[in-house]
Simulated assay, not measured.
Amino acid sequence: MEMNARYTSFVAVGDSFTEGMSDALPDGSYRGWPDLLAARLAAAARPSSGESAAPGFRYANLAVRGKLIGQIADEQCGPAAAMGADLVTLVGGLNDVLRPKCEVDQVCAAESDWDAPLPAAVPPGWGARRAADLRFTREHLVPWTVRRLTGRSSGDGRPAKRPELLPYED
């Protein structure tokens, strides 16, 4: 594969497929397609002979297993935008379509919005943060507790695989 573009940073957002579930390494951690792509991009970003040294390739994977497309957009887009990466990818929606009452057209419509640039992250004020805390409790904490008590989701509450845009190391 010939690649003309040189990316210096990459952020992946999504669900378990982007996290790398079912692609276990011997140490028990997961390696998914974003890790493999990051390795290729990092190799391509290394300067060839005669070029000045580049600052190093940076990679973050914000994916969390079990997330629905709306949760991916709400929880991962802002942090991804704030990182200012050269390349941002989204792979998600399967958790939505696995649910019995899924509206596939709505899932597809949510993903088509990724043609637009990501909005700049703006820190909210104190009142907005308190309102967000209440909304989070109502929309996420209470349902999450119910899911945990009934054993329906293993992914809610898990941290992102690579939450920071850091130098990539093989």
Score class of each variant (00 low, 15 high):
136 F>W: 15
108 C>N: 11
138 R>K: 07
159 P>W: 07
113 D>I: 07
109 A>V: 06
1 M>T: 14
62 L>D: 04
170 D>Y: 02
115 D>V: 14
72 I>L: 13
48 S>K: 06
83 M>A: 12
17 F>G: 05
106 Q>Y: 01
61 N>C: 11
112 S>L: 14
28 G>E: 12
113 D>E: 10
52 S>M: 07
31 R>N: 08
4 N>R: 13
9 S>N: 07
160 A>W: 01
36 L>V: 14
77 C>D: 01
76 Q>L: 07
119 P>T: 04
74 D>F: 02
31 R>S: 10
105 D>H: 05
12 A>Y: 04
94 L>C: 06
86 D>K: 09
164 E>C: 07
70 G>V: 01
104 V>K: 14
37 L>F: 03
23 D>R: 07
62 L>S: 05
118 L>Q: 05
58 R>S: 07
100 P>N: 10
131 A>E: 12
138 R>V: 15
3 M>H: 12
164 E>M: 11
157 G>I: 04
51 E>H: 08
133 D>G: 15
42 A>L: 07
167 P>S: 13
154 S>R: 11
126 W>V: 13
49 S>F: 01
10 F>Y: 15
111 E>G: 11
19 E>N: 04
158 R>W: 10
108 C>R: 13
115 D>Y: 02
146 V>Y: 09
110 A>E: 12
46 R>T: 05
162 R>H: 12
6 R>A: 07
89 T>C: 06
100 P>H: 08
156 D>Y: 04
115 D>T: 12
112 S>K: 13
60 A>T: 06
17 F>W: 05
81 A>L: 08
25 L>A: 13
9 S>M: 04
143 P>I: 12
29 S>Q: 11
116 A>F: 01
133 D>I: 00
28 G>R: 09
170 D>A: 15
31 R>V: 09
105 D>K: 12
5 A>Q: 14
143 P>M: 04
39 A>W: 00
20 G>C: 10
166 L>Q: 10
20 G>L: 05
116 A>N: 03
18 T>W: 00
25 L>W: 02
69 I>T: 10
141 L>V: 10
43 A>S: 11
16 S>R: 06
145 T>K: 08
57 F>E: 03
124 P>T: 01
59 Y>D: 03
83 M>S: 03
6 R>I: 14
98 L>Q: 10
161 K>E: 02
72 I>P: 00
88 V>K: 08
161 K>L: 05
39 A>T: 02
89 T>R: 01
84 G>I: 02
